[in-house]
Design a protein around this nucleic acid. Structure first.
Lengths: 346, 346
DNA sequence: TTGAAAGCGCTAACAT
DNA sequence: ATGTTAGCGCTTTCAA
């Protein structure tokens, strides 16, 4: 049993020879361009099957100037922890994003390249990969508001779409949820539950999403006849939610409902209520935001505002392909409607 | 403000001109080939910086016949559920795999392409992508033992490395954990805890890993003077663990320790013990296998056998690159030692 | 050590 | 409707 040299895979030329036509004709058939006699089409197809031809992507990319793949970048702000990927992947949120992206890309024969950009070095690598044409553009999911990558991508003129609006204004496309509408869902729900003394824990007010949630909540409460809503600012972390809840209770011990601007802070707030002898939801109803893993990990599980993550992710992919095809396309933002998920906390 | 036409990115030619050398010399510098006069090297480097040159990957791939990327394939056996990606990503196990792979690949400038292969159509798409040279090889993580993809990859002669040995023998490389050694850890631990009437719930015995865990457990128990260990066969699912536990208790109501061949089955077994009035770990000590998300989700949290997943995943990547560079390389298997993680269940 | 030149396999503009 | 041909940008012999 001798070792055969690996047979060179057939090229367009081989197929053309087998079908008795020119390379161009084979190329036309392969790429589904009409204006090819159907008899010839059949001949070409047979020759393709006979030779086992598959087009060479590198050669194709070289002339079309398209990689035919996109980067899926998970981006943080200088998170040095080596376990960055593990943590990211454990959150169902990211799984939903991937599901939405793959659902859109797969029927089009496009695969996402997975890249992490949590340090300056990693960000540089991402930019290099894109400039080299390894991918045609980037789908960016940031874990921190201060992520510098959106600006870098924008300045490099690379096609990109973000999940969520960037903290600083950057001329770049993004999808986002209607934070105001989500906050209104929470307000309407708390009022419908008969709560009278309602307060809120907001996110950090330098983050646009946090401001929008607070404004939306206040507006909706005003419409319900509550022009003044006590609030405490948190930092979107569990610990900050804990502290904010303490402050709120110190000033408004009689409150019976809280809208917490994200689930993580709500997770921090719940034990504080318990320590103060307040039962959830009997004494105080709690509503979170995001429907993250924290929402179901809480006791009781959180009523929360859920993003249509899969739809948003699919739209990111669609938008990115649009930008890739039309480099002059202007930055676009697309806003989605959230939904309320009612669980035991209210 | 007129719309500028996008400036064409500089090529080797441009750099060569700027540096006053030939394309070949620039190429040598870019690819770190010695035998280039250091004065010229400097000139070239300056020209590269001045022009902002980055090599075109498609052109490079065309001649080197290397994509410079690898596929990371998550593969099931005809799992039609649309939420396949979400479920996969929610398990910390997969996050650890990704972490290990990226940790190895990233310093080498290689990015993984994410692909899912849970249906026949998706598998065909994966094979096509690889044949087209979109990736140089595949890192395969199967969620089911009966996955047909390993054989397809092997028959297509495509470089690939599996996580875990395939159920049917296929000439293909893989990394795996020493299941026998893991089972021995469990046996030693239960005996050390003073348990006398120890039983086991095995996995499906057509799966090699399940057989190895059972055999390893029996051997270790025999060495401890327990030549006969009651066992019940499960199917690696929570439900099957429940049923197996019922059968075990029916025949051996006095047991005080159980080794369950994976965490999922242990998760099913725990409520059964509770229903029978048996406290864990006081009446019955339970040890699982895998250290999956189920292990920490259980009440009480499971003592379990943990795979060095990150190391295994990194080794997969290393092995794959070896196969890519040496197509004649023979299929290789590399076995890792597991570790016992002690939690409240024992 | 350096340069000249030949392709890698494909698409697309142009000619027929 | 089909064929001819000129590259895409790079690596790599082969000469010098």
């Amino acid at each position: 049993m001798r070792q055969e040299p690996p047979p060179p895979s057939p090229t367009l030329e081989d197929v053309a020879k087998a079908a008795g036509v020119s390379r161009a004709t084979v190329s036309r058939v392969v790429n589904g361009i009409r204006n090819v006699d159907s008899a010839l089409q059949d001949a070409v197809r047979q020759a393709i099957a006979a030779t086992g031809y598959v087009p060479n992507r590198a050669a194709r990319s070289l002339v079309t100037r398209r990689a035919g793949s996109v980067a899926m970048v998970v981006s943080g702000a200088d998170d040095e922890s080596a376990s960055f990927p593990v943590e990211v992947f454990t959150d169902p949120f990211f799984g939903r994003v991937v599901g939405g992206i793959v659902g859109f890309l797969r029927p089009r024969g496009i695969h996402p390249l997975l890249m992490f950009a949590e340090t300056a070095e990693a960000r540089a690598q991402v930019l290099t990969a894109l400039r080299q044409g390894e991918a045609d553009g980037a789908l960016l999911v940031s874990t921190h508001a201060a992520d510098p990558l959106p600006r870098l991508l924008s300045e490099a003129g690379l096609p990109a779409v973000l999940f969520a609006r960037p903290a600083e204004p950057v001329p770049i496309s993004y999808v986002d949820v209607d934070h105001r509408a989500g906050a209104k869902l929470a307000a309407d729900h708390l009022v419908a539950r008969g709560r009278k003394r309602i307060a809120t824990i907001s996110g950090p007010l330098d983050v646009p999403a946090a401001r929008a949630r607070l404004a939306g909540f206040r507006d909706a409460m005003a419409a319900h006849g509550h022009p003044f809503v006590p609030s405490a600012e948190g930092g979107f972390t569990s610990g900050s939610g804990e502290q904010a809840m303490e402050r709120l209770l110190a000033e408004h011990p009689g409150l019976d409902g809280v809208f917490v601007a994200n689930d993580l802070m709500a997770q921090g707030a719940l034990p504080v209520l318990r320590r103060h002898g307040l039962a959830v939801p009997d004494d105080v109803a709690v509503v979170g935001f995001d429907d993250s893993s924290a929402a179901t990990a809480c006791r009781p599980p959180l009523t929360t505002v859920r993003h249509p993550v899969e739809d948003m992710a699919a739209e990111m992919a669609r938008l990115l392909l649009e930008h890739v095809e039309q480099p002059e396309h202007r930055p676009t933002s697309i806003i989605f409607e959230p939904a309320l998920v009612v669980r035991a906390s209210s």
